[in-house]
């Protein structure tokens, strides 16, 4: 089972990274100036504050708190929210699905539009279609996501009335569409650019000349020989873009009042709900690492030269 041992090895490799992220997140919020308990309400009885601090274990030395924190994390306990008194784990669990929906729909949009756009542009480099596609792509990278969201919201929800302007509703595509497209525009643009560059490079490869010498039409050359080779590069871009997507999701979820982990993170940050902030950041990092692991496995499926040795 070379695949299995590869997976296990890769999982082991991510452990230091995860630990480092945990440490970073912990340290970052241990140096928060001012009393945390005092941010919960404006005038707090000093005795109440003391009791609260004891309850939350905030009087222990930092390293003791870190040890306890790690120990609790290991059991899947992300702590209790300062704000809602709810376990962070269950807050995250409730919001995981909407975020997953949003992120994967955005990526699907990005791939379905960006990759064909890149291919079409590469087939006639320097032509009108190429220039237009690359202008769309650089524009997609330059636009502020929440502004694009506002514009789309204004057009499709408020003016045309085709789609709901915000909220999760029943979670159907109708509600998903605007936030997903808003979020998907920059990975779409990036995929279009990298696909174009990849295809142009592959088109100069010797095996493409061999394919032509077989009497293949250009369409078949692309379909039979270029596409799969380009897929490796497209996958790499996708993997990197998932990270950016998760960052941008914070803004887009906030704009569209989407009840995901991103809006949980923003709300928690604004209200200094530190356990919830730590939990959300950790879960995002874990998800990002998991996706990249998945992509590494996919490499092996696409490219036979990669061996899990």
């Amino acid at each position: 089972m070379p695949m299995l041992s590869f997976l296990i090895r890769r999982l082991l490799q991510t452990i230091p990274t995860v630990l480092a992220v945990v440490l970073l997140v912990f340290v970052l919020f241990s140096v928060v100036p001012g009393s945390i308990a005092s941010t919960m309400s404006d005038d707090v009885d000093p005795q109440v504050e003391l009791r609260l601090k004891q309850q939350l274990g905030l009087n222990d030395p930092v390293y003791v708190r870190f040890g306890k924190y790690i120990a609790r994390l290991a059991t899947g306990d992300f702590g209790t929210s300062f704000r809602t008194r709810e376990p962070v784990t269950s807050m995250i669990a409730k919001r995981a699905w909407p975020t997953l929906q949003l992120i994967f729909t955005s990526m699907a949009f990005a791939v379905l539009v960006g990759v064909p756009l890149g291919f079409i542009a590469a087939l006639r480099p320097g032509g009108f279609v190429d220039s237009a596609a690359m202008f769309v792509a650089v524009s997609g990278l330059s636009i502020a996501k929440f502004w694009l969201g506002l514009v789309l919201m204004y057009l499709f929800a408020l003016k045309l009335g085709w789609l709901p302007s915000f909220g999760y509703g029943d979670g159907s595509l109708k509600y998903l569409l605007l936030p997903a497209v808003t979020l998907g525009v920059s990975p779409m643009a990036l995929l279009a650019r990298t696909t174009r560059a990849a295809v142009l490079e592959i088109m100069t490869a010797d095996f493409v000349r061999t394919a032509r010498s077989k009497g293949m039409s250009e369409t078949r050359v692309v379909k039979w020989h270029v596409m799969r080779n380009a897929l490796v590069i497209i996958l790499t871009t996708m993997g990197l873009q998932f990270g950016a997507l998760m960052g941008q999701a914070v803004v887009v979820e906030k704009l569209f009042s989407w009840p995901g982990i991103g809006s949980l993170l923003v709300d928690s940050v604004l209200q200094r709900d530190i356990p919830a902030v730590q939990g959300s950041i950790l879960i995002v990092v874990l998800a990002f690492l998991a996706i990249n692991l998945l992509i590494d496995v996919l490499y092996g499926v696409i490219d036979p030269r990669i061996r899990y040795a």
Binding site: A244, V250, L265
Partner: peptide
């Protein structure tokens, strides 16, 4: 490993 906007958000917090 940490999406940069989220990292920046945490620092701003």
């Amino acid at each position: 490993a940490i999406p940069s906007l989220i990292f920046a958000l945490a620092i701003m917090a």
